[in-house]
Amino acid sequence: MSVQLDARPPTPAAPPGRTTRLHRLSRMDLRWSPYLLIAPFFLLFAIFGAYPLGYTLWVSLHDWDLLGSDPTFVGADNYTALLADSDFWHAVVNTLGIFVLSTLPQLLAALWLANLLNRQLRARTGWRMAVLVPNVTSTAAVAIVFGVLFGREFGMVNWLLDLVGVDAIDWKSNRYASWFAISTMVDWRWTGYNALIFLAAMQAIPRDLYESAAIDGAGRIRQFWSITAPLLTPTIIFVAIISTIGGLQLFTEPRLFHSGPNPIRGGPLRESQTMTMYMFENAFAPYYNFGYGSAVAWLLFVLIAAVATVNVLVIRRLGNGGRKGGRG
């Protein structure tokens, strides 16, 4: 019997210095690689987010018309004048009114639509893709189409109202009617997008819970309120935060909904002028008061931050309540 020996020479051991260096590099890689991977986002945010935000605050403390003159420091004069400006508070009320009319119906409709798409439907993939069509449609095209639909003389909405005996409504000249029309446009465009977010969260819920509930005799409605809704609470709050930020920054829809010589005013009597439209009107044409417009932008930022803080507190409270309930 012959024994074959491995003719390959043994691998020489690494020098102690090299082993220590490799170990140190490995530890540095594990420690610093995550920071290097996320650094590009924070770098871009610092350039295109933090710096413009700080610069806008600096500009809001100056009087600057953007037409060649140097900025003049005026302190808090822009904010003082802004808080006493009736047009500004008119825009704040318009912003909050459109936000309330659009956000709550949008979330409820998205939740209902996601619940339907979560069932065993024929061609359900096609239906799920179809709900994204409004979101991928150009905002300008959507605003123009809805502007025609809500036209006073030849609009389809007034034609349908006339069939049931309701007089024609001037959607673009009536303040509350314009709120409703713009809110309808926003709901149509974003409901499907939010529905897909809810649907993704519903897909993550274990099916065993529904099977156990069905065995216990719970119907679809009972299963939704007892299983789906509680487990979707974090997702509902997330969608509410995103919808809140978008609703308070509304610009394109009300800007394009109105036609006329000066549509940035949101109608002849500023029926639907939002805070972003008011900011644009003052910072650029026709007033070119960049300092005043920057003050509007900062108050809008404060409003959004306040609403976001309230949402964070709600999330923490719900989370703490869930953990306490679990312990009990």
Rank of each mutant, 00 (worst) to 15 (best):
G293N: 07
R128M: 08
Q273D: 11
L269T: 08
G147V: 07
L248R: 13
A240M: 13
L108Y: 13
T274V: 13
I264K: 04
A305Q: 01
Q273S: 09
S86V: 09
T80K: 09
R270T: 02
A39F: 13
I242D: 10
W127R: 07
F45C: 04
A114G: 07
G217Q: 05
A39V: 06
N262H: 04
N94T: 10
F45Q: 05
V131T: 11
Y278C: 06
M1D: 12
S243C: 01
L111I: 06
H90E: 09
H62F: 09
T19F: 00
A177M: 10
A123C: 13
L318Y: 11
I182S: 10
L22P: 00
L149I: 13
F290T: 12
R316D: 12
Y292D: 01
D85E: 05
L248H: 10
L36K: 01
R222H: 14
R327T: 10
S243H: 00
I197T: 10
A7H: 09
A240D: 00
S102L: 05
I237L: 15
H258V: 15
I304G: 08
L37V: 15
R152Y: 13
R189K: 15
I241V: 15
L300H: 05
P71K: 01
D85H: 09
I182G: 08
L107K: 09
N282Y: 13
M185H: 09
V92Y: 01
Y288S: 14
A229I: 08
T125L: 12
R327W: 10
R152W: 02
S69E: 15
Q223H: 00
F257Q: 07
V3W: 10
P261D: 11
L104R: 02
P263N: 05
R24K: 14
I182Y: 03
F41Y: 14
R128P: 04
I236P: 05
